[in-house]
Every structure is written in C-alpha cells, then in structure tokens.
C-alpha cells in the first residue's frame, strides 16, 4: 500500500519517497492519487500538493507553481517549476 511519489524542480529532486496518497491540484480540479492509479497525465495549477504519508495522517502541504503531474506504474511524478519552502 505505498505510492512512490517524486517531486522534481529544475534545480533539484525535492522529494522521492513512498507515501499513502497525494492530492494534486490539477487544472480541471483536484485529484487524489493512490497506489495502482491508472496511467494519467495532467497539467497543474498553482496550489498546494497534499502528501499523506500514512492513512489518516495529517497531510504535509507543499506549495507548487507551474508544472504537470504524471501517473505511471512507477508512481506519481510531479514536475514543478517552483516549489515553496
């Protein structure tokens, strides 16, 4: 029950870890990604990515600006141009 989550900016690899769920602010609405999600690609709007490390745990919030998210068998990859904090 783990989703491999990677958050990458042009300057560095911000996150690469196994998490329970990630909620991504897509251009056409937020979507949550769990393990085993169908292959999917979406642009994202400026907003907060919520990372749930475990089921029921309080989410960790990462502000991102500009980019897109890709879900494949390998997990979720978010390519963002800017990451706050």
């Amino acid at each position: 029950m783990a989703l491999h989550f990677e958050l990458v900016t042009p300057a560095r690899l911000v996150r690469s870890q196994d998490v329970h769920m990630v909620v991504v602010p897509g251009t056409e609405g937020e979507f949550g990604v769990l393990e085993g999600h169908a292959p999917f690609m979406s642009t994202i709007r400026d907003g907060a990515v919520q990372v749930y490390a475990r089921e029921g745990a309080a989410p960790e919030v990462i502000e991102v600006r500009g980019g897109f998210a890709e879900v494949s068998e390998a997990g979720l990859t978010i390519l963002a141009e800017h990451v706050e904090g």
Binding site: P10, G26, T27, E28, A38, P39, F40, M41, S42, T43, G66, G67, F68, S72, E73, E81
Partner: peptide, 26 residues
C-alpha cells in the same frame, strides 16, 4: 498503457513546449 490526459494531449503539449525550451536554456 493507455494514458489519460487532462485537459487534452494538445493542451498539455502546448504548455509543455515553452517549459521544455526553458529547461534547455537552464
């Protein structure tokens, strides 16, 4: 695998290309 795109393939590509140019320059 069949990948789903949101909004659409063309819209994503249109957004991706300037990003790609930026990354090349970076």
């Amino acid at each position: 695998a069949v990948v789903e795109y949101e909004p659409g393939e063309e819209e994503i590509l249109a957004e991706l290309l300037p990003r790609y140019v930026r990354t090349r320059l970076f």
